[in-house]
Design a protein around this nucleic acid. Sequence first.
DNA 1: AGGTGTCGTTGATGTAGATCAATCACCGGA
DNA 2: TCCGGTGATTGATCTACATCAACGACACCT
Lengths: 220, 220
Amino acid sequence: MRSFAICGALDTTELHELAQLTRHVCLESEATVFAQANIATSFFNVHEGTLRQYKLLPDSRRQILGFALPGDFLGLSSVPQHEFSADAIGRVALCQFSKESFATFAENRPRLLCRIIEMAGRELARAQEHMVSLGRRSAEEKVASFLIGWRDRLSGIGRGGEILPLPMRRLDIADHLGLTVETVSRTFSKFERNGVIQIFAGSVVLLDVPRAETLSGIVD
Amino acid sequence: MRSFAICGALDTTELHELAQLTRHVCLESEATVFAQANIATSFFNVHEGTLRQYKLLPDSRRQILGFALPGDFLGLSSVPQHEFSADAIGRVALCQFSKESFATFAENRPRLLCRIIEMAGRELARAQEHMVSLGRRSAEEKVASFLIGWRDRLSGIGRGGEILPLPMRRLDIADHLGLTVETVSRTFSKFERNGVIQIFAGSVVLLDVPRAETLSGIVD
DNA sequence: AGGTGTCGTTGATGTAGATCAATCACCGGA
DNA sequence: TCCGGTGATTGATCTACATCAACGACACCT
């Protein structure tokens, strides 16, 4: 439970009470947590692993909205149906709450509600930053800022380190950045040729962070 | 005050109390409400008019995140600085609250907090839908889905009607959709040629909504 | 009325990234 | 061991949209 990001807003008694409402779920790779347009009956909290959250167009084009990591909240929706789909990249452990019982629990706990607002704000900020990438950055800038952003998120949950794991496939990165696999692959190769990164199976090493930051268009 | 979207969560006494914290502000066209990276000291609620919310890259590329309309909340941020800039498109009337005093007021009013969570969820959903446009839709689809979405938002606040006002300039639409002015203009012209819309200064009429919906890629 | 600035539109041309296609590495199963 | 499937990479070609350029319609000022 200690990885549950909203727990900071709860005391020991409350934590115990919340634990009563929690169901622990483990998912195999590629398993679906929920699908777009399904009725949302549960919230989820990521305990371990990585998920992709995505929307599909009728002709099966896909936009990956983001990747969820431990501590992230899933299914916070203002409408009864899920607005997007979510599935597991590799094995994933989740905490599941019924929407109803969680709502009852949270209803009269302002500190918890404030924490949720704060998390929603953070998520919105990430979405906005991503809109900049999708709308106004070149392929190189998209890939570079993705790598920097991914590294920062991982360090934010204490998973920082020399090697940067990339559990998602190239196609996922492409569908996240509004590019094709080929362009993502070419950009990775180019970065490696230029000594910015080193590519391994399922991970990269950021050899030249300042360079990557420049390429990402964060700095002038 | 009645247009304040969060008011539904308050009783008459509370409304009165909140009114004490409110400062009414009027802005001329092009006036800035707040700028990216400025310290956020206030929340705003749009009372009348339209605003653009945008992020700038160092080289002055711009991504318009969205347009704010009456009832919308501005400045809900998880960090002390504003994450984006906001300025007026035409004359705008706002309600301003100091962040601090609003926080104190909201702190122990769970119903209000829930309302804010709901609004944040709605905003996040809009952002996600927009990511699909930016990442995976063609220029035509972007423009068509923008028109449909704009119409729906206006009807949602009781401003629906035959003619669809577009207070923002073509450049704003371009920076919103990740296109250039020229492409937006060409697409508008094409739609008009094909009898989908009729163009006027500052507005359009949607002549063929089903067609526009098809073009937007919402339907097959 | 003439001058100046902004905005929208249209045309000609260029290019970043998509599409099409082939190859290679890797893995799990027969 | 061979074989089929998936993912990553690279090359050749194509195209949607950007870029560059020009012009017309207004609005505002003097």
